[in-house]
Amino acid sequence: MRIQAEHLSYVYNEKSPFAARALNDVTLTVEEGEFFGIIGHTGSGKSTFIQHLNGLIRIPSSLKKRKKYKSDTVLRVGDFDLASPKTDFRALRRSVGMVFQYPEYQLFAETVFDDVAFGYKNFAAEKPRKEELEDAVRSAIEMVGLDYAAVNDLSPFDLSGGQKRRAAIAGVIVTKPEVLVLDEPAAGLDPLGKQEIMQLLHRIHREWCKTVIIVSHDMDEISENCTRAAVFSEGTVKYVLPPAELFVHTDELRELGLDIPLTAKICEALRRRGIEISCDFTADDLVRKLLARREGIC
């Protein structure tokens, strides 16, 4: 499903001293099949934006309110028109899975099986048959790399940190959403855990969810994994570029208070010494080009 936002604005707590403009005229398109990254400081509006995608935050539908917003606001996810109040939000949420930050804090059921089944049961039109439910839960748990036979009867609170996160992700992808949105999926994990989660996301992207959107602070994560990335700052979108073109703007990104990937830092340091290397800022590509260069010199 293609995601298309035009002139999207949002203000929290309007008409109070706490009023805060979270989104200001955001225009952004995510094509089907992308592994899309969203970068931005805390409070840059990225969380508000992704919450729009499955209707957790809605565009005010009454005419009176809409006048104040730009009337040309467009927000479409596939065939769903989110600016219209008639949208079937349940169907939308079924097609757009949302994994929040630290998803392990949403676990609640007595067993991992029940927790993963929660979403499936909620979205099913009628009560699913036992085998059907078991099938769906089993494949979701196996998809996230957990051993179904070993964990399905355990309490989710007995799992380790990384396993809890996997179980929570299984609870979202169990309905096989077409779009999967993840807020900081690797936050708080050790480097190996981070890598494993990213590999897991690529697998989900390949096999189940056509479009994956991740929000991240970690620029290495973005440069290694994403097809394109959007940079949010103060409620607006500054750049939407593939990582290879984005991380050329080192100074601008630093000005926005953002870091750059390690690979970009290395390239920058080399450039200062007069060695020009152009790479797409993935570690593999940089290493290959550096090696080629050394062979050329020696």
């Binding site: 499955n54 949420r93 079924r94 899975g97 929040f100 949403q106 676990l107 609640f108 909620n122």
Partner: peptide, 28 residues
């Protein structure tokens, strides 16, 4: 929000249903 994204209906249904719907929020 996290449970709503998983299809939890937190503000509809009868009393019994609603009480049951609270568990996924209260526990965490």
């Amino acid at each position: 929000n996290a449970q709503k994204a998983r299809g939890a209906m937190l503000d509809s249904g009868g009393l019994g249903k609603r009480i049951k719907a609270v568990i996924p929020v209260i526990m965490p």
